[in-house]
Design a protein around this nucleic acid. Structure first.
Lengths: 200, 200, 200, 200
DNA sequence: CATGAATGAGACTTCATTCAT
DNA sequence: CATGAATGAAGTCTCATTCAT
C-alpha cells in the first residue's frame, strides 16, 4: 500500500514537472514515465489516461492549496486579516511550488476546453473558500457589499494568478527588477483597499 | 491585393472561431481551411505554420484591442477617468467579441509555453498602455504610488482577463445569476478604489 | 476519379493478400500499406479503420461472388441444373481466387464476433440467393420439401465453405492426393442426391 | 494432484467462456484469470502461452466430442445407423455445450492461421472417425463409393459446423422461427440420402 | 505454488505539411 | 495562386508475459 501510493505520487510529481516544463500537449507520456523512472505502461496502472493524469494532478494541487490556505487563515482575527493571510499564503505557495503554480495557472485555462465534462470541483471549492472570506467581511461591514462576493473572489483570483504567472514566467534577468518579495504586500494592499467599505 | 488580404483575413477569422471553439491543439488546420472555404494547402500560402497562424491571430486581436482601448480613452479628462473608460471598453470588447476574448484568455496561457521564443510584442504593448495610464495617475497624485505601475497593470489585466473568462465560460443557466452587465462597473470600482491614493 | 478508385482498389487488393496470408489480427496496417505501395496514412483516406477495411473487403468479395454465381446460373433450365452450375461456379471461384476464398472462409467467422453490429447484408444476400434456388426446386417438385430452404442453403454453404477451406489450406503434398478437380462434381452429386425428392 | 488438475480445469473452463464470448483475440489473459479466480501469472504455471491455452482448450473439447460421438455410436447396427447417431449426438453436443461449439466453430478457422505449426491432431482424429464411418458404409455397400470418404467426411463436418454456427449465433427472436429441434433430423436425412448408394 | 505489479514492444491512428497538377 | 491527395513521423495506449515476493 505504501509503495503503491509512493509510485503514484512519484508519477504525479513527474507529471507536474513535465507538464510545467512542456505544457500538457507538449508533454509525452513517455517523458513522464522516464522522469518517474517507470515504464510507459506503468502510468496506466495508476491513471486511466493522460487526461486523467492532468485532472488528478490538478485536483491534488488544488487540495494542497486549499488546505494550506485554510490553515494559514486559522488564527486570523477578522476578515481583512484573513484576506491578508490568504494572499500572503497564496503567493508563498507560488514561491515554494513554482511548478505547481505554473500548471495551475497555465493548464487550467486550456483544460477549460477538454475538461468540459469535468466539473472542476476542487477549483470551485477554492473559489468558494475565497468568496466566503469576502462574504464574511461584507457581513461584518468591513468590505463593501456592492460587489457580489463570488465576483470579487474571481477578480482576486485573477490578480493572484496573473501575478503568479508573471513571477513564474519572468526571465531571470527581468525578474530581478521587480521586487518579487513585495508582491504579496502590494496585492494585499490593493485588494484590501479596493474592497474596503467606504464610510460616507 | 485586395482579394489576397481578403482571403488572409478570412482564414484569420476562421482560425479565431475554430481556436475559440476547440482550443489550439484541438483545432485541425483542415478545420480552419474548411471554415474559411479554402483548401488546406492554401493556409500555407498565407501563414508559415499553424503556430504562426496563432501568433498572427493573437497579434491581430491585440492590435484591435489596443486601438479600441486607445480610442476609448481619447476624450478622458484625467487618469481615473481614463482607467474607467479603459475597463469599460475592455469588458465591452469581450462582450462584443466573445471568441476573440476566449482565444486571448485561454490560448495566451498555453501559448506562453510554445511561444517561448515569441517575444509577445503586442501583449507587451498592451501592458505598457495599461501601465502608462496608471503611471500617469500616480504622477498626478490620483493613484497610490507604492505599487509599481507595471505590477498594478498586470494585476488589473489579471482581473479583467479572469472575469472575461468567467463570463465567456459561464454556462447559460448560471450566467443569468450574476449580472454580467454590471461587471464593468464592479471592476472599475474595485480597481479605482484599490489604486486610489489615500490622503493621510 | 479513376485514379482514386484505382488506389482504393489497390489497397483493397493488398488487404486481401495480407489478410489471407496473416489473418485479420495478424495483419498490420503498415503491411497492407507497404504491399499497396502507399503510406500508412493513405489507408485512412479511403477507409475509416482497419475494421472498415475488412468489412469493405468482405462486401466487395461477396458482391463479386454473388454476381458471378448469378451469371453462372443464367442459362440454366431447371433448379437442379441451377444448383449444379451454382456449385461448380463456386468451386471455380475458390480455385481462381484462392485468397478471396480464404478471407471469406476464415475471417467471416471471427468477424461474427467483432462485426456484431454489422448486419452482414452481403452474406445474407448470398444465402438468400442460394435458398431461392432450393426453394424453386422445392416448388417445382424436384427437391424434397421437408427441409426448409434456408436451412438447406446454410448446410450447402457449410459444405462448400469447408471443402474450399480444405482445398485452400491443403499442404501442397497432401493436396495432390485428393483430386481437387473432382470436388465440384462430388459436392454437386451429394447435394443433388441429398435434396432430391423421393417418389414414394 | 487433484487440486492442480482442478485449477487447470477451472482455467480451461474460464477460457472457454471468455473465448466464446469475445473471441480469441478479443479475450485478455487477465479476463480469463479473473473469470477463473486466479492471478494472471497463475495461467502461465499451467499453460505456456495464450496460444497454448487455446490449443489445449481445443484439444480438450475435441477429446470430449470424439469420446461422446464414439460412445453414441456404440450400439449401432450398421453404418447408416451409426451416422444417424453421430449427427444427432453432434447436434446434441452443440445444444448442451453452446460455448464449446462456438469456440470450435469460430476459433478453429482463425486458428488455422496462427496454428500453422500445430498439426491439429485431435481434429484430424475427429475427421478420421467420421471418415471411418462413411468408409464402413461404403464397404458395406450402403453408401455411394464414388466420393472419397475423407471428402464426404469433410463435407459432413462443414454442414454440421455451419448449422451449429447458425444455431449458436441466431438472434433469440430469429432463432424461434426455425425449429432448432428438428435440425438433427434434417441434417441426418440430407446426409443419409446424399450418401446413399443408388441401385442402378 | 501463487501472486499481481511492472514491463515494454508494438499497433493503430492522427494530422501538420508538402508538392505535383 | 490554389488545390487536396499523399505523406510519414510520432504519440497514446494495450496487453502478453515475467519475476520478485
Amino acid at each position: 500500500m505504501k509503495e503503491k501510493d509512493d509510485k503514484r505520487a512519484r508519477i504525479l510529481d513527474s507529471a507536474l514537472r513535465v507538464f510545467a516544463d512542456k505544457g500538457f500537449f507538449g508533454a509525452k507520456v513517455s517523458d513522464i514515465a522516464a522522469e518517474a523512472g517507470v515504464a510507459d505502461g506503468t502510468i496506466y496502472l495508476y491513471f486511466k489516461s493522460k487526461d486523467d493524469l492532468l485532472i488528478c494532478l490538478f485536483e491534488a494541487q488544488m487540495t494542497i492549496i486549499t488546505a494550506e490556505l485554510t490553515s494559514a487563515m486559522a488564527g486570523a482575527t477578522d476578515a481583512p486579516d484573513k484576506l491578508r493571510r490568504f494572499v500572503r499564503a497564496y503567493m508563498k505557495l507560488v514561491e515554494s511550488n513554482r511548478r505547481g503554480a505554473e500548471v495551475i495557472a497555465i493548464e487550467l485555462r486550456q483544460s477549460a476546453k477538454f475538461m468540459k465534462e469535468y466539473s472542476n470541483v476542487r477549483f470551485t471549492e477554492f473559489l468558494k473558500l475565497t468568496a466566503s472570506v469576502i462574504d464574511e467581511g461584507q457581513r461584518a461591514g468591513a468590505f463593501r457589499a456592492d460587489v457580489p462576493a463570488p465576483v470579487a473572489a474571481r477578480a482576486l483570483f485573477g490578480m493572484l494568478d496573473e501575478l503568479a504567472l508573471m513571477w513564474v514566467t519572468a526571465r531571470p534577468g527581468t525578474a530581478a527588477k521587480l521586487d518579487i518579495a513585495r508582491l504579496p504586500d502590494w496585492v494585499t494592499s490593493i485588494v484590501l483597499q479596493g474592497l474596503e467599505r467606504r464610510t460616507a
